[in-house]
Computed example of a mutant assay.
Amino acid sequence: MRVKKRRGIVALLLVVAVALALAGAAAVGWDFRHHEEHREIPVAAGTLDAVLARPEAEPRGLVVVVHGDGPVDATHDGLYRPWFEAAADAGFATLSWSKPGVGGSSGNWLDQSMEDRAQEVGAVLDWAAAQRITDGPVVLWGASQAGWVLPRVAATRPEVTAVVAVSPAVNWLRQGRFNLLATGGDVAVSDRTRELLAQGADHARYVAESGDPDPMAADRWGFVLRNFRSDATADLEAMAGRHLPVLLDLGEHDENVDVDETERTYRRILGADVTVRRYDAAHSMARTGVEDSDVLGVLTAVFRPRHLLADGVLDDYREFLRAR
């Protein structure tokens, strides 16, 4: 139910490295072939702090980014920029925003359900249409937790013409158990936590009875309590009726998501509409060496950001967009 993360040390090292290498990094690794514009998107809860990454020419299409779990900003601390660039190479602009409560965005992403997240994407699509960024195809790109958002939006929004799903799970509880077993977690604690979720226990009871030595904070517990029944199957079946082209990116070394289950489910429901690509990559599509070493990851992010991702990931993404 919780994805293993190393955000604290990585973020700290990244800030230090960027501060030390700022002058040289632009010349060495951060000379991306797109330009970025800050935008503010009005939504029911206030404002979303967004970035519109544009190609040099007028965009012929738009990619709308749907984040995974966690407090992610519009560029994912710069890690999305290689994706932005690949889209720009294909003539597509990319629209991404900081999750509620992150950066300048209003609200708190931990207060959201998956339905709230889908409605947020719908509001962004409405805004993008009003801005007339492009009259061309609109592609949804989403990672990890976005697997419970993408098909819900794609099934109901006629302007969406294709989907890129990166490491999506199918079922919240099965995903959590897979991650637990892959990372050597405590099964007894997990089982008791599942019982408490099923009973709708409040945070105080969870802390007192779960046996978790590192319990979730109250807002995280509330988030999980709202979303632990999430399953993408019905929304994928609804999306299948639209016969949208789908690019499914999976990593052979994913410890968060059972990629075999995901591939089976997407192929069974979407059939010929889905193109599956599997890479020598971790959950994030990062090269395994980069994923396993904080220092190597930071240095690569600063000086060779395009090489964070496994071979073929960006090339396949670029070609998928060019075909739209």
Rank of each mutant, 00 (worst) to 15 (best):
R2V: 01
R2N: 14
K4Y: 08
R6P: 04
A11L: 10
A11D: 11
L12Q: 14
A17Y: 02
V18A: 15
L20H: 15
A21I: 14
A23L: 12
A26N: 11
G29E: 01
W30A: 09
H35G: 00
E37N: 07
R39P: 08
P42A: 15
V43I: 11
A45C: 11
T47W: 13
D49I: 01
L52P: 00
V66P: 00
G70S: 15
P71M: 09
D73G: 04
G78V: 11
G78A: 08
Y80K: 15
P82G: 06
W83K: 00
A87G: 05
A88M: 02
D89G: 00
F92P: 00
A93Y: 00
P100L: 06
P100T: 02
P100W: 03
G104C: 03
G107Y: 04
N108S: 13
Q112K: 04
S113P: 02
E115P: 02
E120H: 07
A128M: 12
A129R: 12
A130W: 05
T134Q: 07
G136P: 02
Q145A: 10
A146G: 14
V149M: 14
R152F: 05
A155Y: 00
A155K: 06
E159I: 08
A162I: 01
A165S: 06
V166S: 10
P168V: 11
G176S: 13
G176L: 03
V187A: 09
V189P: 08
S190Y: 12
R192T: 06
R194T: 01
A198L: 09
G200E: 05
D202G: 13
H203R: 02
R205L: 11
V207E: 04
E209N: 10
M216T: 15
D219M: 01
R220F: 13
G222F: 11
R226D: 06
N227I: 02
R229H: 11
T233M: 06
A234H: 11
D235S: 14
L236M: 10
L236V: 10
G241L: 09
G241D: 09
L247N: 00
E252W: 02
A272W: 06
D273N: 13
A281Y: 04
A281Q: 09
A281H: 04
M285S: 09
A286L: 08
V290C: 04
E291P: 04
D292Y: 07
V295A: 12
T300C: 07
A301Y: 00
F303E: 03
V313K: 05
L314I: 14
Y317T: 11
E319I: 15
E319F: 12
F320H: 02
L321Q: 02
R322N: 00
